[in-house]
C-alpha cells in the first residue's frame, strides 16, 4: 500500500533520514522504533508531506506521491497524527474534529463515531483544545485524523506524556482500529507495548533502518541491540 524507495530527508545540510526503503502492506501494523533523534518523526512527516523529500521515491496505492502536497495525500487516504499532537489550540474540540473532515472521504467516521470512540471528549466538546488534559488532547488528535477516513493511519508517539491509565485507554481505541483492518504505522517508545501491538517491528538508527522483522520472529533483546547500535552513550537515555 505504501512503498518508500531510498528516501532521503534533510534539514539544510543535515541528512536526518538516509536511504530508507520500506514496504507497507494493506492491513499491516508496524511499530517504528528508535532512539531519540533516530529520524522516526522526520521519516513519518516526510511520508505525510509535511517535509520535502530530498531524494528517493514514495508511492501510495501505486501512485507516486513523492512531491504531492500533504492535503493531496490526505485525499488519497494517508493521515498522520503528528508528534506533540499539534492541535489548533484556540479552537474547540469540535472544530478541530471538523477540520479533519475538510477532505470528505467516504467512510463511516464522523463526529458521532469519534465521540463514541472517545467518550471522554463528549462533555468537553465545546472547550478550547488548548484547555484539555493530555489524554483528551491526544484523543482529539487521533479523532481528527480519523475524521478523514484514512486507509493508512500514522501515529507518532501517541502515548508521550500520558499517565499509564490514559495510555491504556488510547491503546484500547487504536487496537479497535487495528482489528477493524486499518493499516497503522506507529512510533512508540515503550518497547513492550510496541511489540505487543504491532505485527512488524522496524527499528531506525541514525536515519537508517537497521532492523525490519515480524514481531513474532524477533525478541526484545534483538530489538534493543538494534536500537542502540554501536552507540553506548545512548544507554542512559533509553531507560
Amino acid at each position: 500500500m505504501l512503498s518508500a524507495k531510498n528516501l532521503d530527508v534533510r534539514y539544510g545540510q543535515f541528512r536526518a533520514v538516509r536511504g530508507v526503503s520500506l514496504e507497507v502492506k494493506q492491513g499491516e501494523t508496524i511499530a517504528l522504533i528508535g532512539a531519540n533523534g533516530a529520524g522516526k518523526s522526520t521519516l513519518l512527516r516526510a511520508i505525510a508531506g509535511a517535509l520535502p523529500i530530498y531524494s528517493g521515491e514514495l508511492s501510495f496505492k501505486h501512485k507516486v506521491i513523492t512531491h504531492a502536497a500533504s492535503c493531496d495525500r490526505v485525499k488519497q487516504g494517508l493521515s498522520l497524527v503528528p508528534e506533540g499532537r499539534r492541535l489548533f489550540t484556540e479552537m474547540t474540540i469540535e472544530e478541530n474534529l471538523l477540520l479533519g473532515k475538510t477532505i470528505n472521504r467516504a467512510g463511516d467516521w464522523d463526529l458521532d463515531r469519534v465521540f463514541d470512540t472517545f467518550p471522554n471528549l463528549v462533555k468537553r466538546r465545546h472547550a478550547k483544545a488548548g484547555s484539555l488534559s493530555g489524554g483528551e488532547q491526544q484523543a482529539t488528535a487521533i479523532g481528527r485524523a480519523l475524521m478523514s477516513n484514512p486507509e493508512l493511519l500514522i501515529l507518532d508517539e501517541v502515548s508521550l506524556g500520558l499517565s499509564p491509565l490514559v495510555v491504556d485507554q488510547v491503546y484500547a481505541s487504536i487496537e479497535k482500529l487495528r482489528d477493524a483492518g486499518t493499516t497503522i504505522i506507529l512510533v512508540e517508545q515503550a518497547l513492550d507495548r510496541a511489540i505487543a501491538f504491532a505485527k512488524r517491528a522496524v527499528c531506525m538508527l541514525e536515519g537508517r533502518i537497521v532492523l525490519d522483522k515480524l514481531t513474532a520472529d524477533t525478541n526484545r533483546h534483538e530489538i534493543t541491540e538494534a536500537y542502540f547500535g554501536l552507540q553506548q552513550s545512548a544507554t542512559q537515555e533509553a531507560s
Partner: peptide, 23 residues
C-alpha cells in the same frame, strides 16, 4: 467551514496541510 480552515491555516499552516487543508 471556510473560516475554520482559514483560521487553522493562519495558526499552523503545516498541520493544516496534514489535516487535508489546501493551504
Amino acid at each position: 467551514p471556510l473560516g475554520r480552515q482559514i483560521r487553522a491555516t493562519a495558526f499552523d499552516p503545516e498541520t493544516a496541510g496534514l489535516v487535508g487543508i489546501d493551504a
